[in-house]
């Protein structure tokens, strides 16, 4: 990734990326990277897109700054809309190329796609992704490689972007191409408590999940595959599942006055039902 020429090198290209410059720097379009001129002008890369987009050729001309049709505003707006859609469709293909991956990686490192809202992920950077590769199905989502889950964008200006412009594969390909970027996995988690005591139903689920995790780690060890978990929270949680549960209990009653004092009302909560 490093050392790759991230910028279009000659001034001629600077001029020719006028529409794309404007597009990716527009508010709400922060998730897109700029598609290379070279990629756009190779017809092979655009195979099949001509049937997906209205006024395909005009739209492509606009994206590559060679649009010179004399038309009314309404027509211009229609072509403009088509160009944005076409850019998105090409973008989905571009970001899984070597150069596209490198560009998205730079944006990932700059937190351009935001941070994971999950507390235990400690602000891990997100990646944009789609739940479908077919346009007009699902809006863009954000993937966290630490908890391996997907989240809704915070801002409504992002939640309207078509997920197909990023696709279902890109974020997974990125970590396959750059395995060193796979973040360390953690068993750290939230456990719901009432006055220091675990809630029975939730605690039972947590124990079940920890067994599932231990089984996975056993499978991986058998196949001699790295689990990606810290060695420290490694072995013992398999040997003694209950131990980490017990540790969590320790900080409960004594040092916390809230757990010792029975407030008036607190005891009555139960009778509400």
């Amino acid at each position: 990734m490093a050392g790759m020429d991230d910028f279009v090198s000659d001034s001629d290209s600077d001029y020719t990326s006028y529409w794309r410059d404007w597009f990716i720097s527009s508010r709400g379009n922060e998730y897109y990277c700029e598609i290379d001129e070279d990629y756009l002008t190779d017809r092979f890369n655009l195979t099949g897109l001509n049937t997906e987009v209205q006024y395909y050729q005009y739209a492509l001309d606009l994206i590559t700054d060679v649009f010179d049709l004399d038309c009314d505003d309404e027509m211009r707006e229609t072509i403009e809309k088509s160009a944005r859609h076409l850019y998105g469709l090409i973008h989905a293909r571009y970001i899984v190329t070597t150069r596209g991956l490198a560009k998205m990686l730079e944006k990932y490192k700059k937190f351009d796609f935001g941070k994971c809202p999950r507390v235990m992920c400690h602000s891990h950077p997100l990646l944009p992704m789609g739940l479908s590769d077919v346009p007009h199905q699902k809006a863009v989502k954000l993937y966290c490689a630490r908890c391996e889950d997907i989240y809704n964008p915070k801002s409504t200006r992002h939640s309207a972007i078509d997920g197909a412009y990023f696709g279902t594969s890109f974020h997974n390909i990125l970590f396959q191409v750059y395995p060193a970027l796979v973040p360390q996995k953690t068993t750290e988690r939230y456990i719901p408590r009432v006055y220091g005591f675990k809630v029975h139903a939730a605690a039972a689920l947590v124990r079940w999940q920890h067994k599932d995790r231990a089984e996975m780690r056993r499978r991986l060890r058998k196949m001699e595959v790295e689990s990606g978990f810290d060695k420290l929270d490694g072995e013992e949680d398999e040997e003694d599942e209950e131990e980490d549960d017990d540790e969590e209990l320790e900080d409960a009653p004594e040092q916390n006055p809230a757990a010792v004092v029975q407030y008036r009302g607190a005891g009555e909560v139960a009778t509400l039902q």
């Binding site: 630490r146 908890c147 391996e148 889950d149 279902t168 594969s169 997974n172 390909i173 970590f175 396959q176 395995p179 796979v182 996995k185 988690r189 999940q209 920890h210 599932d212 995790r213 996975m216 499978r219 991986l220 196949m223 595959v225 790295e226 689990s227 990606g228 978990f229």
Partner: peptide, 21 residues
């Protein structure tokens, strides 16, 4: 996680590790 419709294997270095959660 899927790549071109194929599930990413648990045995891959970048395979799923957090599904238990």
């Amino acid at each position: 996680p899927k790549i071109y419709g194929f599930r990413v294997s648990e045995l891959a270095r970048s395979g799923p590790r957090m599904q238990w959660l």
